[in-house]
Simulated scan of single mutants.
Amino acid sequence: MRLLHTADFHAGRTLRGFDRTPEIRAALTEVADLAKSERADAVLVAGDLFDSVNPSAEAESAIYDFFLRLRELEIPSVAIAGNHDSANRLAGLSGLLGWVGVHLVAQMPASPQAAVRTITAKNGTDLVVAAFPFLSERRLVKYADVLGGDVGAWRQKYREGMGFFMGQFERSFRANAVNTLMLHATVEGSAPSGSERTFLFDLTNAYTVSPQQFPTSAQYVALGHVHKPQQPSEAPPAYYPGSLIQLDFGEAGERKGVNLVEVEPGRPAKVHFLPLSAGKPLKVVKSDLDDLDRKLAAVADFPGLLKVVVQVPGGATMPGLKDRVLRLLPQTLAIETEAVGEAAPASVERRDGLTPLQLFERYYRERRGVETLPSNLKAAFEEADRLAREEEVPGAGVNA
């Protein structure tokens, strides 16, 4: 049996105001073409189809066109919701997507066995997929923080819970079938991509799953969530294929692709990484003032998107720097200064002790490339955070 494993599409992603959806659409077309040329029996999509819970029409079109293309090729797929997806929204579409061959599990059902999907390949072999969508740990974190609890204990409870579900899944595996586990989570020991989106990384990577919790009878574990392609477990073999394109400058220079998995009942999977060519490459250019013009000229013909970091003495202001860079490199999306010398910060900016609002303000600056969070958005975030805390703490916000 031949499987194509992919994840982390993030349709609808913008980078410093630049819409990446056309590149993601092109990458998805390439994935569908690979599914055809590699004679895939099924495609596994391990979460984060979209970049936000309210994707644009263009983002939805890119995703649904991909699944329609697989339908035309008569290649079934199994997909799960990731932390960026709206589980409720996808759950509402699961029946409709089922008509085009998509086995979508957006929310964990009351019985774990109800999340198991079986696909019969053309050669008669059954593929059993334990589809484990993202389970949010944010409420546990906030609850523990508000009550002053031991967050480490909550993390252990989370890990035990994940282990319980995976143990339940293993009951559905069969000796005469290809048995796979698919989940959207952070596996202990996996390496992040270095993404700039520190706010979301903080919230969604608070807890980890141990590779030792994976069902031993699984022949392949299809992972999603971490954007850097890697193998965090050998027994059973577990892989992150990574994101489809270099989504932000933390992923600059990373090779992107999908995994081709060759597997048969009772035997470990053989995995081949298939690179993708779609998507603009990203590059970070770092220079001091004396060498700036030479460094900029050296990347004048770079075909992708650039981030320029200029080292300035003592953090001095540099009027006209943006115009100077954009005049030579119009493909530059981000221009930043980095203080060097006596006034330079002693260490990397820390996130410890920051409030959720402060983390969100930092995330918004990184995402949008602006200095100030709009007042209406700030007020909306504060209100949402207040309501979340009232909901999660028994008795909070209730009039006596």
Rank of each mutant, 00 (worst) to 15 (best):
L4G: 04
A11C: 07
F18L: 11
R20E: 06
P22L: 05
R25H: 13
A27W: 02
L28G: 14
V31N: 12
A32I: 04
D33P: 01
A42P: 01
D48K: 07
P55L: 02
E58T: 08
L68D: 10
R71C: 05
L73N: 08
P76I: 00
V78E: 04
N88D: 15
V100G: 09
A110R: 14
Q113I: 11
Q113H: 13
V116M: 07
T118M: 03
D126C: 07
L127Q: 09
V128C: 04
A131R: 12
P133E: 01
V141E: 14
A144M: 00
G149D: 06
D150P: 08
V151E: 14
W154M: 15
F169T: 05
S172Q: 12
V178S: 06
M182F: 06
L183E: 02
A185F: 04
S190T: 14
F199M: 14
D202W: 07
T208N: 09
S210D: 15
Q219H: 06
P229L: 06
Q230C: 03
P232F: 00
A235R: 10
Y239E: 02
Y240C: 02
E251R: 05
R255E: 13
G257D: 00
E262N: 09
A269Y: 01
K270M: 09
K270P: 03
L274Y: 00
L282K: 04
V285N: 12
K286Y: 00
L289V: 12
L292W: 11
D293V: 15
R294C: 09
G304M: 08
V310N: 10
L321I: 11
L329P: 04
I335G: 00
E336I: 01
A339W: 07
A339C: 09
V340P: 07
E342D: 15
P345I: 03
R350K: 15
D352Q: 12
T355Y: 01
R365S: 14
G369Y: 07
L373T: 12
L373G: 11
D385Q: 12
L387F: 04
V398S: 11
